[in-house]
Design a protein around this nucleic acid. Structure first.
Lengths: 213, 213
DNA sequence: AGGCTTATTATACGCTCGAATAATTCGCGC
DNA sequence: GCGCGAATTATTCGAGCGTATAATAAGCCT
């Protein structure tokens, strides 16, 4: 009757491990293949432990969804705040969203798996909405600061319209660039993104895309 | 021992029914809920029949994926060819892609479910690639004809870059508009799409978006 | 150092899954 | 109108699912 020896981990640590394992399984085998047993094996524990940390498998999936979305927006925002001017911050934000690690087949696969569950489970819809709005707001803030810096007057409504358009463009390029990654060279996508955004905002060519000003 | 009475259908008819039932199940219960038994029940047959028409459940899923994608592109192309000028055809194509039935939560849910399987199963990747390229080509053709009509010289490379950008924008607006449908009024999205595309192509305001010219 | 809490393992249960096979009934060709 | 091929149903199988519960060992506290 030799039981497995094991290590007692802290709650935060263990939860994180389980969520990471969940994402690994979804990315590798799809949401169908992310079974309690597979996830537990990946995390190096036995299946029963999952129910000790999450009241159901579904709750664990929701936590995993939050993790994916947080990772994506945080990466972009982290890149943005490094910029010194509003122009640079906007530029960095856009580029980060069409550059690894955000453009990553695994990330896309995870994102899509959860998106397809929005219709089925309202809890996922709420998580999506939360993240969508916060992303849109971040973009709107960057845009508005940029226009102030450029001394260009812009109504809030106009700014919002721009934010929606830029958001769509960035999302779309992210999709294209990740799904057809082999079609685009590394920075080709980023260049296209900057040129497209500056056109969208009716800026002068180079006003946003040029390396230095 | 009363067996169910049944109707012998033609192969094409039966396959179509089964695929439609498959999509219904995926949309309603997710890809996890699209089980052989559920699908069969939805189609009004028994489970065994599926294996009579498809060598495996996976093959049926692939056929279903093709169906979804074909439906989306066909709807947009059908709208486009009704236009009398190149401008009108481009305009119609764009609007169709951000208007029902293309912008439909069910369609999005199906699309996302399959996208998330691209990484897992190469067969799905091939189907995606096929459709992406054909969509991009259709868009490129429309754009190129439009620029000819406008007597604006454009290198093929420039045209391709535009096609990639417009494709991204349309995809992104489709995503946003469907996922946050309640945020946008019916034609708000279409208007935004036209205005954004005309900015992207560096056209004069109204050159594409205005109702009449 | 030894007891107590509890994180973790182990095992079992009832259900549903995709697939295979056998039995039946439909409907076309003659 | 009947026989025969094949479309369809019915039934079965082993595997794997999520969950529940009991047994166990890890490691902090005093």
């Amino acid at each position: 009757m030799n039981r497995r020896t094991y290590h007692r981990a802290s709650e935060a640590e263990r939860r994180e491990d389980l969520i990471a394992a969940t994402l690994d399984c979804i990315a590798e085998f799809g949401i169908q293949g992310a079974t309690v047993r597979q996830i537990a094996m990946r995390a190096g524990v036995t299946g029963g432990l999952i129910r000790h940390y999450f009241s159901s498998k579904d709750q664990m999936l929701q936590a995993a969804y939050r993790k994916v979305m947080a990772g994506m927006t945080e990466a972009a925002i982290a890149a943005a705040i490094e910029g010194e001017t509003a122009r640079s911050r906007l530029r960095r934000f856009i580029v980060a969203n069409v550059t690894p690690p955000v453009t990553d087949p695994r990330t896309l696969s995870l994102w899509a798996a959860f998106i397809s569950h929005i219709q089925i489970d309202q809890s996922f819809a709420a998580i999506h909405r939360e993240n969508y709005l916060s992303f849109l707001e971040a973009l709107e803030t960057l845009l508005s600061a940029f226009f102030v810096e450029e001394k260009r007057a812009l109504s809030p409504a106009q700014c919002r319209t721009y934010a929606i358009g830029v958001n769509a463009l960035v999302d779309g390029l992210w999709l294209e660039g990740t799904l057809a990654a082999d079609t685009f060279a590394e920075h080709e996508l980023a260049e296209n993104a900057l040129i497209s955004v500056e056109a969208l905002l009716r800026l002068q060519p180079g006003e946003l895309s040029a390396e230095q000003r």
